[in-house]
Design a protein around this nucleic acid. Structure first.
Lengths: 149, 149
DNA sequence: TTTTTAAGTTCATTTTTTGAACCTGTCAAT
DNA sequence: ATTGACAGGTTCAAAAAATGAACTTAAAAA
C-alpha cells in the first residue's frame, strides 16, 4: 500500500481515500458492520489473501478505525472492532449500497435498509441538516477551493 | 484492473466497488465534479500516469459513468462528462468529504458545502427519507442477507 | 500426547502501477 | 507549404503490490 502521499493532501476526499481507497479495505469494513470480528472470520467471508488481510487490519488499527482486542478466554485470539471513527464510516457504505442498488442492479432498486426509530424500510438519502432537503449534484456547491469539489 | 469477479457479486457494495474501488478513479470523478473534462485537464490536476488515466477513463465510459464527447470546434479533442449515473455518485463523494473533515482534519471540521435552495453552509448528513431522522451505525439495519451489511 | 486451531509470516510468481519516451493526426503560425 | 506545438493517447521496462501456497508458533482440545 502506498498511502503517505495522500494523507497530506489538502483535500478531505483524498485523505479519506488514503484509508478506504482500496476495495479489500472497504469489504473488510463491510464485514465489520456485519459483526465479523476475527481474522478467520474475515478470511472465510471474503476469500482474501491472508497477507493482504493482515496488512489491511494493521493499517485500520493504526488509523484508529478498528481496535484490536484480546479475547479474555483465549490467549491467542483477537477481535477487531469498529471504533467510533470506524462506525462513522457507515454512511459511506450505505451511500455506496444505495448507488449500487440503483445503478448496478438488474431490476428495481430494492429498499432493504431499516431505520429502527421509525420502522420504515428505506433508501438512505443525503440531506441538508438545516432544511432536510435532499442533496444532489445540482443543488450543492463546495465552497473552499482547497478541498476541490 | 481486475473487476470482473466483483461485478457479479451478490452485494451492491461490492458491485459499486467494482467501479469506484480504486483511488485514482475516485479522484478522477472528483475532478469531473469540479468541471474538469479533458484528458490534459485530469493530468494537470492529478499528476496521474497517462496510461492509468487512459485506462480509467475508458472503464468509466464503458460503465456509463462518463460520456466521451467530441469537441465540435477541434476534431481531435474530447470531453469526458458525467452522465446521470455519474452525477448520482456525488452523495458518495460528499459523504467521504464529511468523514474526512471530521476525522482526518487537524482542527474543527469545516462546513463548506452550500445547499443552494436554502443557502445554508452545511455538513451533509445521511437521512431517512420518511422521517428525516439521521442515519448511523446504531439506528440502521440492513435486512436482506444477500447484500450483507 | 497428539492433533487442531487461530493468527499470522515468508516466499516465489503474477499482475499492476509508474514514468519516460514515443506516436500521430490536427491546428496555428511563418 | 513547411514548421512547430498540442491533444490524446500507446508502448515499454522497471518498480511495487497482489496472490496463493507453504511454513510458523503457541495454545487449546481431543
Amino acid at each position: 500500500m502506498k498511502r503517505l502521499g495522500l494523507k497530506s493532501e489538502p483535500c478531505s476526499i483524498a485523505r479519506t481515500l488514503s484509508i478506504i481507497g482500496e476495495r479489500w479495505t472497504v469489504l473488510i469494513l463491510r464485514e465489520c458492520f456485519r459483526n465479523i470480528s476475527r481474522f478467520d472470520g474475515f478470511e472465510a467471508a471474503l476469500k482474501i489473501p491472508r497477507a493482504i488481510l493482515a496488512d489491511r487490519l494493521k493499517m485500520l488499527v493504526a488509523e484508529g478505525v478498528l481496535e484490536k482486542q484480546q479475547d479474555k478466554d483465549h490467549a491467542r485470539r483477537f477481535s477487531y472492532v469498529l471504533t467510533q471513527k470506524g462506525l462513522d464510516l457507515r454512511p459511506i457504505l450505505l451511500t455506496m449500497l444505495a448507488w449500487g442498488d440503483k445503478h448496478l442492479q438488474p431490476g428495481p432498486p430494492p429498499k432493504e435498509v431499516e431505520h429502527l426509530p421509525c420502522g420504515h424500510t428505506i433508501t438512505p438519502v443525503l440531506c441538508c441538516p438545516e432544511c432536510h432537503g435532499e442533496l444532489d449534484a445540482n443543488n450543492t456547491r463546495v465552497i473552499n477551493s482547497t478541498r476541490r469539489l
